[in-house]
Design a protein around this nucleic acid. Structure first.
Length: 877
RNA sequence: GGGAUUAUAGAUCAGUUGGUUAGAUCGUUUCGUUGACAUCGAAAAGGGCACAAGUUCGAGUCUUGUUAAUCCCACCA
């Protein structure tokens, strides 16, 4: 490989190549056979519906950071990749494409249709996996799984059968949420409740045997066709005497009872509720309690049922319009008022959900939820950030049975058969062709498939070989961390926990690391309908995967949403470019470097010791933050260290040695430059894998991929060198500052006079004067006991700095400038002064805090008096 | 109806366990291009952390309340 690198950072030129290198050696990704403590993550399987979106990019980046970090630390890492078959979503996509061809799934038939979906899956599944590689995801590609592959399907069957045999799965004719457009049942959490402006229609239902009537209020007048009763509260005085009498349902002229039920709210509407057991969940319950018939008046496709005269066949909303007119004309409708209420919509297509009675399969949740609650309460499972614990527990504590059957074709078919000969239902793990009861051959398998989330719930162990007892399960279950968005805590996280506990006897993961949504630049959710989605692949093409990753991880805290920003992508790219060029600088200077050279401690200069100490401190901070899942903070520390310390200061500080004649000094500088850069690359690798890999491979004495290099935990911090170097840096800054304030170019050589009042400071300065000269063009530098008169003045702790600039000094202006400076200093210490004046503070605050405040005050006071005396001096000129 | 989150420079956001003069990025102003980098360097202006009360020697950080925005949950027709 070439030793030098191009002048411009162009990630497009090497990211693909680097990934190919990694993939060629499978050990880079698959470290599952390594020794060491296991660390595993299962990917939240992206839907095979299409392509990776920005949310995936975030999710995958966070996982890759954790995996790469742990891999470097020597963990036995496993990152399980794969896709989800995504029942409704994928089926809808394929149906859409069929529509484009002028056909539909019914014309094709089930078998042919499924073939089409599998073709789709092959195409898009591999595309998604390709996109993951583009992002740099170091998944274990040999283990890639799919929720409908053989193993996962076997797991689904096994789990279904055991839950069924235990009585936790049952089939029932119950009211469920139905989407007329998707033409399938939905679970409760697939229904989104949106507040809508509607009406409350007041209707009069006449008694059978008198001209009296009861007034009911409804938001859905069309359902009155299916009314089989009217309910009032048992304690409602208005109706007490009327309960038990018979009413005549208008339009249909059906006799229906007026009855009492606790459910009714006396305060709402008229206190009397029309009851439609077939089309309202509450009415359904009341219907069961009072033995009311269920009259289905709305079909599965949202049209009105047969037998309703002119209303039959109308769409439910069309019917509403017509019926309201008719009721008005008949004098049944007495009033209409505006009414705001929550209406359920299909989370997939947005259609208003219709509660319908149908035969569906359910999972009894209560006994499954209890251990899942317990796992969190006892700390077996932790959420990061913690606040999601409450949301999770609250949901589980109020859980309702889970409707798992879907009237779709794409998915795991329910393993139940109906015998047309004897009428028995057989639930079986293996496919059957003969009825075990009557030996009849007329068996029909249940047409329905399972909710997608049923198989997703098993993902952490189905991907590891369940129902077989595999080494993977032993080693990697429970997985270490689950990384996912807060939007699927109910859909996925909680169900995995329940199933994991049930079928593996342990939680599926120790920690759930929750992140937020990626929003667009205006803070809106990225969505297809808004067309504001940004394709991560586009960002990668333009700026490189490292930049995208860095942008996604910085400025973001666990659990919070984050805004996509091109500016921040650019700033990440600039950072990458900075590293690139710093490396290029080193490589250029490294040409005649003796790779075997190793400096002794005495060879190290103050700058060397300083940067090594800063690196050690940074490494510790990065490691701590990664362990706490504060990935953004860890990335920020690297950004600051590399840019503001290594590049801005250290590289500049080495230049005198690099361009000088002293070979040993030069070698020492190169050695430290190289060492610090190499360690920094390792620390940065989880965040920017490509850049760090390609650069590190060009450094001397480096073997193998950075992926498998040891993590750098950081060494000793050298407080002394840090504070000494800080003094130098402060002096340089003051000189630059003074020059800048009078409009003198920083690089223009100027005389500088130092008056040092502190003997240690003097020592430090005198032995490191070269740095000041180099970085502030201060030449010559002289030391003095007397303050020079015609000079700008500045001060740092223990040192007064004078910049004699003939002709450029305007005494009045300088006095004004210093006065301003003085005010600033005074303002700065007033807080400290007050603190120390406060007896309680001195008495109660920790001694070290008091001590540091005292030191702060002393040093500030020293600065103040030096500025004061300078002002006096100038005034007396 | 219940719950959560957010409110910090012109914009977008960090600020972990309460303790130096509250930070970054972008933008703005001034200066600077012959040797790592204009995808750059030097310098500067700009906020006192939504509001109020409280706890504390000390609060952006903890407590309570208020306001605003966003989101989740919820079977009042």
């Amino acid at each position: 490989m070439e030793k030098n690198i191009s002048k411009v950072y162009e990630p497009q030129n090497f990211e693909k190549e680097i990934y190919a290198q990694w993939e060629a050696d499978k050990n880079f990704h698959t470290t599952a056979d390594r020794a060491g403590e296991p660390y595993s993550i299962v990917i939240p399987p992206p839907n095979v519906t299409g392509q990776l979106h920005m949310g995936h990019a975030l999710d995958e980046t966070l996982q890759d950071i954790l995996i790469r970090y742990h891999r470097m630390r020597g963990f036995n890492t496993l990152w399980m990749p794969g896709c989800d078959h995504a029942g409704i979503a994928t089926q809808a996509k394929v149906e859409e494409s069929l529509r484009g061809e002028g056909t539909n799934r019914y014309e094709l038939g089930r078998e042919k249709f499924l073939e089409r979906v599998w073709q789709w899956k092959e195409k898009y599944g591999s595309r998604i996996m390709y996109q993951l590689r583009t992002l740099g995801a170091s998944c274990d590609w040999e283990r890639e799984r799919f929720t409908m592959d053989e193993g996962c399907s076997a797991a689904v069957r096994k789990v279904f059968i055991s839950l069924y045999n235990e009585g936790l799965i049952y089939r029932g004719n119950r009211i469920t949420n139905w989407c007329p457009k998707c033409n399938t049942a939905l679970s409760d959490i697939e229904v989104e409740h949106l507040t809508e402006q509607g009406h409350l229609w007041h209707l009069r239902y006449k008694f059978k045997d008198s001209d009296e009537f009861v007034e009911v209020a409804t938001t859905r007048p069309e359902t009155m066709l299916g009314d089989t009763g009217v309910a009032v509260h048992p304690d409602d005085e208005r109706y007490k005497n009327l309960v038990g009498r018979t009413l005549i349902l208008p339009v249909v002229n059906r006799e229906i009872p007026l009855f009492a039920d606790e459910y009714v709210d006396k305060e709402f509407g008229t206190g009397a509720v029309k009851v439609t057991p077939a089309h309202d969940p509450n009415d359904f319950e009341m219907g069961l309690r009072h033995n009311l018939p269920q009259v289905k008046v709305i079909n599965n496709d949202g049209t009105m049922a047969d037998g309703l005269g002119k209303y039959s066949g109308l769409d439910r909303y069309e019917c509403r319009k017509v019926l309201v007119e008719d009721l008005k004309a008949a004098g049944v409708l007495v009033s209409t008022e505006n009414h705001e209420h929550a209406v359920g919509h299909c989370s997939r297509c947005g259609t208003t959900v219709e509660p319908l009675v149908s035969e569906q399969w359910f999972v009894k949740m209560e006994s499954l939820a209890a251990p899942a609650i317990d796992a969190v309460k006892t700390g077996k499972l932790k959420f990061v950030p913690e606040r999601f614990t409450k949301i999770y527990i609250n949901w589980l504590e109020n859980i309702r049975d889970w409707c798992i059957s879907r009237q779709l074709w794409w998915g795991h078919r329910i393993p139940a058969w109906y015998c047309d000969d004897c009428g028995e239902m057989i639930v079986s793990e293996k496919n059957i062709s003969e009825c075990p009861h009557c030996h009849g051959k007329n068996l029909r398998q249940d047409e329905d498939v399972l909710d997608t989330w049923f198989s997703s719930a098993l993902w952490p162990f189905s991907t590891m070989g369940y129902p077989e007892d595999t080494p993977e399960l032993k080693k990697f279950y429970p997985t270490s961390t689950l990384v996912t968005g807060y939007d699927i805590i109910f859909f996925w996280v909680s169900r995995m926990v329940m199933m994991g506990l049930k079928f593996q006897g342990d939680v599926p993961f120790r920690t759930v690391f929750i992140h937020g949504l990626v929003r667009d630049e205006l803070g809106r959710k990225m969505s297809k309908s808004l067309g504001n989605g940004i394709d991560p692949v586009e960002v990668i093409d333009k700026y490189g995967a490292d930049s995208l990753r860095f942008m996604l991880v910085t400025g973001n805290t666990p659990g919070n949403d984050l805004r996509f920003s091109w500016q921040r992508v650019e700033s990440a790219r600039n950072f990458a470019n900075k590293i690139w060029n710093a490396s290029r600088f080193l490589l250029m200077n490294l040409e005649n470097f003796d790779a075997n050279f190793k400096p002794s401690d005495e060879d190290l200069t103050l700058a060397d010791k300083w940067i090594i100490s800063r690196l050690n401190r940074t490494a510790k901070g990065v490691t701590d933050n990664l362990n706490k899942f504060e990935l953004g903070e860890a990335a920020r520390l690297m950004y600051e260290f590399i840019w503001s310390e290594f590049c801005d200061w250290y590289i500049e500080l080495t230049k005198a040695r690099l361009y000088g004649e002293d070979v040993k000094a030069k070698s020492t500088a190169l050695y430290v430059l190289n060492d610090v850069l190499e360690k920094s690359l390792r620390l940065l690798h989880p965040f920017m894998p490509f850049l760090t890999e390609i650069i590190r491979q060009k450094l001397p004495n480096v073997e193998g991929s950075i992926m498998l290099a040891d993590w750098f935990n950081g060494g000793e911090v050298d407080e002394n060198s840090e504070s000494e170097m800080n003094l130098i840096i402060d002096v340089i800054k003051v000189i630059r500052n003074l020059k800048s304030e009078v409009g003198v170019e920083v690089r223009k050589k100027s005389e500088v006079i130092l008056k040092v009042s502190n003997i240690d400071a003097e020592k430090v300065l005198k032995s490191n004067l070269i740095y000041v000269t180099e970085l502030s063009a201060a030449e010559p530098i002289t030391f003095t006991e007397e303050k020079p008169q015609h000079a700008l003045a500045g001060v740092v702790e223990g040192v007064e700095i004078f910049l004699p600039l003939k002709g450029l000094i305007n005494i009045d202006k300088e006095v004004a400038r210093l006065t301003k400076e003085l005010e600033k200093l005074r303002k700065g210490i007033s807080v400290t002064e007050n603190k120390l004046k406060n007896e309680k503070f001195v008495a109660k605050a920790p001694a070290e805090v008091v001590q540091s405040e005292r030191e702060k005050l002393a040093s500030a006071q020293e600065k103040i008096s030096s500025v004061e005396s300078r002002i006096e001096q100038l005034k007396n000129l």
